[in-house]
Design a protein around this nucleic acid. Structure first.
Length: 524
RNA sequence: GGCCUGUUCGUCUAAUGGUCAGGACGCAAGAUUUUCAUUCUUGAAAUAGGGGUUCGAUUCCCCUACGGGCUACCA
């Protein structure tokens, strides 16, 4: 039994010690929105590349014409832009190894597939999908492999002249890899360590489809080679097909240039079992895609983290912590810090259930830590969508800084800020009315005239005179503050009431007290 | 079913052949804030089970159970 061993040494693991420039790629297929797990794969690729001053390549795997979705590629680019994970090479940016769309590289793949056929590592297969379907149905555990391939219609079972005849006659066919019956394949995964497979377990994967397009298996190997990819990171769902890829690297004579592999753990449903899917988001009420995704055909809108009010920094941060940590208790990292601290060896090897509560906590932390100035255009947009024009930059920034620790998601700013721009539409009267007295009415009358005489309008001064006046009238300041708040804000929330009054300004504060008075003093 | 892969509080995770098994989210209680939120303090909460190896195993090995992935002319 021949043994194909691909055991890189430990030293090969440290890319800085290799003379090759680090090159990684993210290779999505444009079939829809960009999933959480996809963004995390991008992130880990990006972090690794930037840590070692390497290149991050975006390659579009659009080889499945049946599943191709118009607009998906642009959407993916937009997501990466929003996250700030900008590829060094891509279909849009171009690059030395263009084109970066596999559909545009179609001609390349056939050449390598034919080469494999002539070397005896692959073969033509003429079986129709219907025939295969029937086999799968009739034969338990049917696999197109060493056990059955001789009974099927392919260039291994057919006579040479028959094959030639079929080929010449334009008979639809695919090219399949000929998996060895009895070899053990070992390889080193940067996350999992040594992994091994028996080649006989895998079927003879299609390499080149009848339409001339390559399957993922062929395309990924050819392109990774041609694009000089040094490290191939992808989701764990690819682990079982790794032996096919390893064999291809070997058969094509490129083994020395094979990238280092790492299979990233999956992101799982918070409840129940299985991979996190688009449907789980809808079912459980949280986004699964990075940004809103509109399906043109059905008109279905799948919500995204961006539109829900996540900061890209928080989004990246929470994704990074799903399966990775730096070994300390720190959980908040900027992109630059992640680049500095990241290491593939510290990535967990088991799947992580997604926890939306924790995701929100990350966002709240990031909002709290952000300067009002950096949040202002987002907040302005949120207010604008609700018809509030926040034109004064300086004013808006001071408002944001005042309330940001009360906000978890960006849209929370509307609730926390709208009353600064417009009078309360409703008042939580139940909170004050039962305890209302004429003495309180009297107090606010005096307070208004007191305010009218003020030159300045600063929070501490307001508080002082408010309390002083209360004492003068023989009232408890504490019992007056909640009514005051309701008059200004409408409800039991928000920052210190005197901060609110100060920001509202003299005239507006007086106006609001006056407006609210009749509500508390119904006419007799 | 077969193959691969995994298993520490409910969840994300740290750590070590000898620790009171640490942190975070969430939850609960309390303090501060005469609102809400923040903040602070405290609490409940975990090494899947069984065998080995060992003076000692959560850590190393084996088995079982359970989870997950793959098993397409999809990626």
């Amino acid at each position: 039994m021949e043994r194909l061993s691909v055991f890189p040494t430990k030293t090969y693991l440290c890319p800085t010690m290799s003379d090759k420039k680090v090159r990684v790629r993210f290779a999505p297929s444009p079939t829809g929105g960009l999933h959480l797990g996809g963004v995390r794969t991008v992130l880990f690729n990006y972090l690794f590349a930037k840590k070692y001053k390497g290149d991050f390549v975006l390659r579009v795997e659009d080889t499945d014409q049946g599943r191709y979705v118009e607009g998906a590629e642009k959407y993916i680019m937009d997501c990466l832009n929003w996250c700030g994970l900008i590829p060094d090479e891509s279909p849009i940016a171009g690059g030395q190894y263009a084109p970066y769309r596999q559909s545009e590289r179609k001609a390349i793949y056939r050449e390598y597939a034919e080469r494999l056929v002539s070397q005896g590592h692959a073969y033509y297969a003429f079986d129709t999908p219907e025939e295969l379907e029937r086999n799968r149905k009739e034969i338990p555990n049917f696999q197109y492999g060493h056990a059955y391939r001789n009974g099927l219609r392919n260039s291994l079972s057919l006579k040479t002249h028959q094959v030639q005849q079929l080929l010449d006659g334009g008979e639809p066919h695919v090219i399949r890899i000929k998996m060895p019956e009895d070899e053990t394949i070992h390889f080193y995964d940067m996350i999992r360590g040594n992994v091994s497979f028996e080649t006989g377990q895998s079927d003879d994967k299609v390499l080149l489809k009848a339409d001339g397009m390559p399957t993922y298996h062929l395309a990924v190997v050819v392109d990774d080679y041609l694009m000089k990819i040094t490290h191939a990171f992808r989701g764990e769902e690819w682990l079982p097909s790794a032996p096919v890829h390893l064999l291809l690297w070997e058969y094509l004579g490129w083994k020395a240039d094979m990238p280092q592999w790492a299979h990233l753990p999956l992101i799982l449903k918070p409840d129940g079992h299985g991979k996190l899917s688009k449907r789980d988001g809808a079912r459980l009420g949280f986004p699964v895609y990075a940004m809103n995704w509109l399906d043109e055909k059905t008109g279905d809108l799948t919500p995204g983290f961006r539109e829900l009010g996540f900061l890209p920094e928080a989004f990246l941060n929470l994704l990074a912590m799903l399966g990775w940590n730096d070994g300390t208790d720190n959980e908040i990292f900027t992109l630059d810090e992640l680049i500095e601290k990241f290491s593939m060896e510290r990535v967990h090897n088991s799947g992580a259930k997604f926890d939306f509560e924790k995701a929100k906590w990350f966002n709240a932390e990031w909002i709290k830590r952000s300067e009002g100035g950096s949040l202002k255009s987002e907040v302005r947009k949120i207010l604008g969508d609700k018809g509030i024009v926040a034109s004064d930059d300086e004013y808006l920034i001071s408002l944001i800084d005042l309330v940001k620790e009360r906000c978890t998601l960006l849209p929370d700013f509307y609730h926390q800020l709208s009353y600064f721009y417009e009078q309360p539409k409703e008042y939580d009267l139940n909170a004050v009315k039962p305890k209302w007295t004429d003495a309180k009415t009297e107090f606010f009358k005096s307070f208004i005239s007191l305010l009218g005489k003020r030159e300045d309008f600063l929070a501490p001064d307001l508080e002082q005179s408010f309390k002083f006046l209360a004492e003068e009238k023989g009232l408890k300041a504490g019992e007056l503050m909640l009514p005051f708040r309701i008059m200004l804000v409408g409800g039991k929330f928000g920052p210190h009431v005197f901060d609110i009054a100060a920001l509202l300004g003299k005239e507006e504060t007086i106006k609001r007290i006056e407006k609210a008075q009749p509500l508390l003093n119904p006419p007799l």
